[in-house]
Design a protein around this nucleic acid. Structure first.
Length: 685
DNA sequence: AGCTACAGGACTC
DNA sequence: CCTGGAGTCCTGTAGCT
């Protein structure tokens, strides 16, 4: 149910309050005692994008009639806040009528899944701390304090701290103070003394640099558990959950924070922490116990470890990389020359130009279409076409190598720092399933067999990279979650589950057995199976049926997931992490099907994410406890890479095995986890 | 002309 | 009915101001 109420005055607010309060989502458009600013309204609305806007009272109505929306609305009309998204505006001249409309709305909009209401915001009081900063730090040392910095740059090496802000509760009152030019060393000492609340801890950590994992709560990461589908940005969270008013949009358009008067920065900074504190309290109310322990055990401490991993970086063999690039440039040049003679001057990266050549000039048959309904020029299509035109094959190669050269190798070259290290960013909280992603550069999509793997090397003279990946990770998680007895038995006996499936279903190769196991565990349809692996549909259907008869627990597991999605609107993984998949009846079958697949995939992908992330945290603690020099440098979904001095390799391998097979001491997996270790001077296989 | 948004295609687990 | 899920990044193109 999605409604937006614009409250023209305070006394009327009370009447609406309990209707609004129950939904738990508030948006502020007015500052206390002042009239709402139309620009601010428009800004807020464009963020929330409500489907229905219910205006009541002449004051509210006039605001819109004179504002920039004037030309778009009539008495009942449509406003577009974004292309393709209609907003119905219902206008009631008086409160009684609005109340009646409000009462009827549920029946009309049964399909709207978000409730948004507009009412007076909570405006925190922000003050400058005028006494010595030591007193403030001492006062807040041991109490729960929201903390935030404003700086001149995102990078601590390039900028400096302008202000710091602190919010805490004293009795019932929320106190917020900001200070100017705090010393980094003071903050570093202060940080470790008590519980902290921050929004996006990795940023504050990189400036404050505490020496060990401490007690902090990250409202950004918590937001990812409350609703993984919503934007976790502080601004968006405040609009949605905290009756925040958009103070950030009132900041004039300065180029850089260093040009902004310090008291403006400080006040802004103060609003950030005050609202962060309120957001924290809201989250405390909606997160359940399992989510809180996942946060405490894994998610919060992980951000510290990720910061350390980013800071450490991974060492690159620059000479080798350069040689590789030269070789590839050479191949691109000869390849391009060859193709130019044959087909003319064509940009092979342009699907449009390739499409023109293949289907208009060469008049080849259209075998596959893209999602957008255009004839496909993908690798698979060209491979199929090249069966009759051998001369097309070099196109695949040239496209592949130019994309690798431009997409991967040049990124590696560019992002290597002066000392030969690449510092990727591990994004936590962005992926709906709980996985990490990597960017600048993305080190999680380095080619499996790519030559560039040999460029990743150890920072220690004579050192080694130790890489450990989980064996049959997803299959084991599926079996562990569904309590599948067959897979448990096979794994405990040390048999290969893929070979077993191959034999049972009388398949031709282990490869087929493996594909069947992996695809069916994450809920593929018979048709999808046939399409994906080139089996006939009847065979796919037969095997799928037999497979589920061998694994009745997995069949039940899938049924249960489907029920959860329909009844509760979300599914849960082994550790209490949720994936919200709102399905309403009006949506087409396509979306339903998709949601059902997502539901089946989530416990596996999301379970894997929490397992390996817990392992990273545990491994970090074990390495530090043992006083080793070795550093965790990469996490690639089912793999952890540690850079180790040669003499520590044996110990590191032991610790990796311990951390990865038992990532959460006290949590017993129905099917045990196992790892495969590789030790080398690079990460090449 | 410069910006943004998107689609398509490459790579990953 | 559609053709397991989750990402990043590059390029070209279309549409906007």
């Amino acid at each position: 149910m999605e409604k937006l109420l614009l409250q023209p005055s305070l006394e009327k607010l009370n009447i609406w309050w309990d209707l609004v309060e129950r939904k738990g989502r508030h948006v502020g458009l007015e500052e206390e005692g002042r009239k709402a600013n139309p620009d601010r309204l428009l800004y807020t609305l464009s963020k929330i994008r409500p489907k229905v806007l219910l205006l009541c009272g002449e004051e509210a109505w006039n605001l819109f009639k004179v504002g920039p929306l004037k030309k778009l609305i009539n008495d009942v009309g449509i406003i577009n806040f974004s292309p393709g998204r209609d907003v119905w505006v219902l206008h009631a001249p008086c409160l009684a009528e609005a109340a009646e409309m409000h009462r009827l709305l549920p029946q009309v909009e049964a399909s709207f899944d978000r409730a948004v209401s507009v009412c007076n915001p909570h405006v925190p009081k922000v003050k400058k701390w005028v006494r010595p900063i030591e007193e403030l730090l001492e006062k807040t040392a041991k109490i729960l304090t929201a903390y935030d910095l404003e700086t001149t740059s995102l990078d601590p090496r390039k900028g400096r701290i302008l202000t710091a802000s602190f919010t805490w509760r004293e009795e019932k009152k929320l106190l917020t103070y900001w200070v100017e030019n705090p010393k980094q060393s003071d903050l570093k000492r202060w940080w470790v003394k008590g519980p902290r609340i921050v929004h996006n801890a990795k940023f504050e950590l990189s400036w404050t640099k505490p020496i060990k994992i401490t007690d902090y709560h990250d409202t950004f990461l918590r937001a990812g558990l409350v609703d993984e589908n919503e934007s976790h940005r502080l601004e968006d969270q405040l609009l949605r959950y905290c009756r925040g008013y958009p103070y950030w949009s009132s900041l004039p358009d300065y180029g850089d924070f260093s040009d902004v008067p310090l008291h403006v920065v400080g006040t802004y900074n103060g609003f950030d922490t005050a609202y962060t504190y309120l957001l924290y309290e809201y989250q405390e109310g909606v997160l359940d116990d399992r989510e809180k322990s996942l946060l405490g055990d894994v998610i919060n401490p992980l951000s510290f470890v990720l910061w350390k991993m980013e800071e450490a970086g991974v060492k690159i063999n620059g000479g080798k990389l350069k040689k590789l690039c030269q070789e590839m440039d050479e191949e691109i040049k000869t390849g391009n020359d060859f193709l130019r003679k044959k087909f003319g001057d064509i940009n092979w990266s342009s699907p449009k130009q390739v499409r023109k050549l293949l289907y208009e000039e060469m008049k080849l048959p259209v075998l596959e279409m893209t999602k957008g309904g255009e004839p496909s020029t993908s690798k698979e299509t060209i491979e199929r076409l090249s069966k009759r035109r051998k001369s097309l094959l070099p196109i695949i190669r040239i496209r592949e190598i130019t994309s690798i050269r431009n997409g991967i190798l040049s990124a590696l070259e560019e992002k290597t720092d002066g000392n030969g290290y690449i510092h990727t960013t591990f994004n936590q909280g962005f992926v709906a399933t709980g996985r990490l992603s990597s960017s600048n550069p993305n080190l999680q999509n380095i080619r499996r067999e790519g030559a560039e793997k040999s460029c990743f090397t150890s920072r220690f003279p004579g050192g080694r990279l130790v890489a450990a990946d989980y064996e049959q990770f997803e299959l084991r998680i599926c079996a562990a979650h569904s309590k599948d007895r067959m897979f448990r038995k096979l794994i405990l006996e040390g048999q290969d589950p893929h070979t077993h499936t191959t034999k049972e279903l009388e398949l031709s190769s282990r490869q087929d057995g493996k594909q069947l196991n992996l695809s069916l565990a994450s809920g593929i349809s018979a048709r999808g199976l046939a399409y994906e692996h080139g089996f006939s549909e009847s065979k796919a259907r037969k095997w799928r049926g037999e497979w589920f008869r061998l694994h009745p627990q997995i069949a039940m597991f899938h049924t249960k997931l489907g029920q959860d999605v329909r009844r509760k609107g979300y599914v849960t993984n082994l550790f209490g992490r949720k994936r919200h998949l709102p399905i309403s009846k009006e949506r087409n079958q396509n979306s339903q099907r998709r949601a059902s697949n997502q539901a089946k995939n989530f416990p596996i992908q999301g379970g894997g994410a929490d397992i390996i992330n817990a392992a990273v945290v545990r491994l970090y603690r074990l390495l530090r406890k043992e006083g080793l020099k070795a550093l965790i440098v990469l996490q690639i979904h089912d793999e952890i890479v540690v850079d180790s001095p040669k003499e520590e390799v044996k110990k590191v391998a032991e610790l990796m095995k311990e951390a990865m097979t038992n990532p959460m001491p006290g949590f017993e997996f129905f099917v045990p986890m196992a790892i495969d270790l590789r030790v080398g001077t690079s990460i090449a296989k």
